[in-house]
Design a binder for these strands. Structure first.
Lengths: 209, 209
DNA sequence: ATTCAACTTGACCCTGGGGTCAAGTTTCGT
DNA sequence: ACGAAACTTGACCCCAGGGTCAAGTTGAAT
């Protein structure tokens, strides 16, 4: 790769990181190129697809953030505390960083590294759920898919309320969390989604193709 | 108004009602005209704006549906039962009729008759909430705005899951409802939205201009 | 039957997103 | 310092949605 191309790629990575952070992973590619001071043709030359760019720009950040949250959640002595921490902190992360929000809620099958990160994050989440259920504080009919669903809706809520009431998501999450304790549980009307279904629904929810 | 214009208006109303029902109130106006077998220019001539069309086509249906649900909810002997019925039934309505879903979740300030219907619906909802709170079964920190917020998110969830898992919304609502009982309540992290804030957030949430 | 206002039409414009590629420019090895 | 390969550019194409309006058509009053 020629030196100038290297430089442009770097400028594009920077601009993309900024715009993804500000506006989420659907930020227009042309605008990213504009901010980088480069033609959009160059963006297509150097990265080819949006997902390739995402994979380069967002993956490491996401891995760090998600890993840290999961770790801290498992570090809680109290299983319910860890579970609640996990949900609250991830939702907070979604509210403050649209890019991360989209990673958690979206579908980017062609971003390989990113998918691996999600994979890891999912198994961590499963552990957090299981621990709280074994402690008897989290209702036993709650599933991993329900958790992701929560993040999916929170992504939208947080984005919609960002400028008007940046903390609006907290109330919804708090109500929800109160409904997830074992003591609060009443029988559910429907079984959980399959992961296949979840995948599709999350896609529609966040407008990921 | 000339007879042919009358006929066209009728065809357009019918087509609009169908498409709004199938796809929600953002259905492309050109497609409505196409389905009516009429030029889109005619649609603009006869109705002017999307909201005018909505107001003519959706208001009566919405009034009937919303009115009935509220009435039945208040007819419940049990205040909590009435509250839960109201939420569940309205959410179900959202899941089965995208047009109603958008009415409940959206913003259409220029559709005067529709706004009046919403107004009425809101005061009914307030009564349902208050009754359940006075009975001591609904947590006292729950507000009208929280309720509308629930409908706002449910609109998105129901739409996203429609084709994949038409009942997916039920689980989320059930968790939520379990969190709204007085026994489940833990202190909330934030105060409620003002109605002004809610208005803006709902607008962003549903993409209503 | 004529006439003219009322109405309809579809070509046209705009916006904003995605994407391509021939022609021009720059880097780098020799 | 030169030439080939690598790279960049921006004009161009696509699509889908909103919206306008001059020209043509039709209804109905006289």
């Amino acid at each position: 790769m020629r030196a100038d191309a290297q430089r442009n790629a770097e400028k594009l990575r920077t601009a993309a990181a900024e715009l993804f952070h500000e506006r989420g992973l659907q930020a227009p590619l042309k605008e990213i190129a504009r901010r980088a001071g480069v033609s959009h043709g160059t963006l297509y030359n150097l990265f080819g697809t949006r997902e390739a760019l995402i994979d380069e720009v967002v993956t490491d950040l996401a891995a760090a953030r998600l890993g840290e949250v999961a770790e801290q959640a498992l570090a809680h002595e109290d299983a319910w505390g860890g579970f609640a921490y996990y949900i609250e902190t991830l939702c907070e992360l979604q509210a403050t960083d649209p890019a991360i929000s989209d990673v958690v809620a979206g579908r980017y099958p062609d971003a390989e590294r990113l998918m691996a990160v999600c994979e890891r994050s999912h198994t961590a989440a499963a552990r957090i759920i299981e621990r709280a259920q074994q402690a008897g504080t989290l209702r036993p009919d709650f599933t991993h898919e329900d958790l992701l669903f929560i993040f999916g809706t929170n992504a939208l809520v947080a984005r919609a309320a960002k400028d008007t009431a940046p903390d609006a998501w907290r109330r919804g999450v708090a109500f929800m969390l109160d409904g997830l304790r074992s003591e609060a549980a009443h029988p559910l009307p429907t079984g959980p989604l399959t992961s296949r279904q979840l995948y599709q629904v999350m896609g529609n929810l966040t407008g990921t193709p």
